[in-house]
Design a protein around this nucleic acid. Sequence first.
DNA 1: CTAGTCACG
DNA 2: ACGTACGTGACTAGT
Length: 882
Amino acid sequence: MDKKLVIIDGNSIINRAFYALPEMNNKEGLKTNAIYGFTTMLFKIIDTYKPTHISVAFDRKAPTFRHLEYEEYKAGRKKMPDELRVQFEPLKELLDKFNINRLEIDGYEADDIIGTVSKKGEENGYKVYIVTGDKDAIQLASDKTTTLITKKGIGEVEEYNFDSVMEKYEMTPTQFIDLKGLMGDKSDNIPGVPGVGEKTGIKLIKEFSSIENLVENVDQLKGSVKKKIEENKELAIMSKRLATIIRDVPIEINLDDLEFGDYNKSDVLDIFRYFGFNSLLSRVLELDGGFESEEEEININILDLENIEEFKNEINNKKELILKTVRKQGNILEKNIINIFMSLDGENIYCINEDAIEKFKDIFSSNDIKKYGYNLKDDYLALRPYDIKLENMQFDIVIAEYLIDSTSSTSYECSAIAMKYLTKKVKSEEELLGKGVKAKKYENLDSAQLKDHIGQIINTVKNVMPIMEETLTDMNMDELFHSVEMPLVEVLGSMEYRGIKVDKDKLNELGIEFRKIISSLESEIYELSGETFNINSPKQLGVILFEKLELPVIKKTKTGYSTNADVLEKLKDSHPIIDKITEYRQIVKLNSTYVEGLLNIINPISNRIHSSFNQTITTTGRISSTEPNLQNIPVKMEIGRKIRKVFISDNKCKLVDADYSQVELRVLAQMSQDENMIEAFKHNEDIHTKTASQVFNVNMEEVTSQLRAAAKAVNFGIIYGKSDFGLADDLNIPLKKAKEYIESYFAKYSKIKGFMDETIEKATENGYVTTILNRRRYIPEIKSSNFMERNRGKRFAMNAPIQGSAADIIKIAMVNVYKKLEEKNLKSKLILQVHDELIVEAFEDELEEVKQIVKDEMENAVKMDINLDVDLNTGNSWYETK
DNA sequence: CTAGTCACG
DNA sequence: ACGTACGTGACTAGT
């Protein structure tokens, strides 16, 4: 095989990469953009040129012979930014893991090493490639050496060999040195001959072929050029010497040591994981052609179940089961299972179809057999229509991965998890089904494909679990995982399955009412603006308001005028149309999102709404709700609040609505241990009034509603890390005043200030912050070199422990309420969670007991120095529970 | 598919 | 001096 040698100018490529890519950090906040760019470049070169040998040359700090000869060499260069400097060592480590040879030597630049190695390569019959961003290396191009110069950042390279240089520049590669000697080079501070630029330089080189020859025959020139050359002979010759890449650097090189390919793959993968280069993991596997060889592929035996009893006995003996259901899409309340795949060892995988489900009912609903899986809530829900409750869900790898990294930008897809933990290629959903409208459905896959895919998932679950278990323990989250998040899976599944009853007629009625208002507002707006237009288009509305009506522009967006509620609020006295638009927006929102939106999603079988509660979305630990989002049903304005009349209790039931009072501020008081605030909560005082009296130095009785509102804004602002500027804007007060408020606040609640500072410090030191249950949020932004990003990171750091701890608390309460209701065999069910609020659909004959349970379990979810306080309300509709 | 807007805690 | 409050999801317009 032909020997191919790639020599990379390490400094040049890392520089290019650094400036070409936006800032990137690993979880610990280490800057990685230049390393990442270098690595992708390296991969690209390997893919394209398939080198047998690789070497990377680096500059040394020590002065080179060029500096010694010419003091001004490379003077005036900008200092290397720290963000780049810190990436050198990690990059060199990465190269070491790849067993890629590195060369550096005092007194010479990377260029000279490259010149030397390439010469040696040529002499020994190698085909040589030089990779750099520096055009000087074109002088090394020959019929055996190709110089690859990066262009467009680092995305592409341009090839130079002897012929292409001749063709393009009508000069030999080595004549580039002579040209540079004449022209000089600003970036290296090589003087050249003053007054000679590119044009003259090229002309002279073409005519005289070298600087030496030119100097000797200077008589043949005339005019000013002759004078310039005559006066600067020495300068030209020295410049040439500075520009000449040395090709016999005194360095021991054994080309055999440069051979590429002998490295420990798992070490490389480890360092990639450390850098957070998850997207490159698969590329590592593909590097030496083809994926992990066949023999490493797992062995999936999918058997038709011949002897169900035998398999069931095995499960009963082992008391655990990995399972994955495959379901057609369809009504949540209907039987839609196609297959259930089950396994004990992750390799022998059994598959049953719908008819056999009943036979496994005792297994699935056994509290004795631990269930492991991937998105277990789906399995729970798939089985419910068969009158089977999947019990004892112990380990869901998606939930585990969410706890391990809630900020992960990749979804918690099996393919990503398998790659991260096992470095195994599993097809992603998109690869399996395709994407967009043309995507296939599970029911349309052929059975071999389906079996293989689910087999891979089950195998992944099996192999990933022990690693995740250890990781969770190391991160102190085993308790959170096993006692809170995993039990919550069933709670959320149960909430979804039960759903909430809706009064469809009432919803339709509201729709009629809203549409009436909308059409009259529409006419009024057209009247006031003198023309019809699409009021729903911010763009068209902007034109009407700010061009036609010439109202003052308050704020701009990326694409044009801002017309949001804040802006309209500031404009409302300038034109009567503004109030109409505000109202129009409000009613349109109610109609389209809530009336139309909810009507579309009422389950025809149950006449109820079955929202999905997602446990792995938010970075802070909160739950989110989709299709529909039941966590943002209007409540603030009376007209919107009417939507809540639609959510009603079933026959013989009432809705019990329990919400924590000021849970986030209580958490803040607890975590900061601020005596002042703890005291306020202990005396059950209105916290905002109390804050007002403390911050504004007045008696509790003297606190006006304005003062209370200001204090409330400050209290919330603190939780979010708000600035004086934002507070001033919010309260419409001078900046100075806002500053005073915050200062006075921190003076009164001094430990809160201390807590915030400590939290930021911890985040900076560890790269993450934690909640009361050790839930972790990584904050790479906190180490950003960008002021704004870094400040955002600080706000995340201040907010996440508070919001996240509140989420922890209500999750514990949910699990405990659910357990109690089950234990006592009550028919009443938990049906909704809205961050600090739980809603139970309670049977009237259980009402008092349920109220007690909910209040108790919520108030005693965790032990704190401050009591948790819960407000309870009961009604026939959500509207009534206020 | 993104941006703007607005509903909630 | 920088710009300026955290966490979500749904809908509409417009490219």
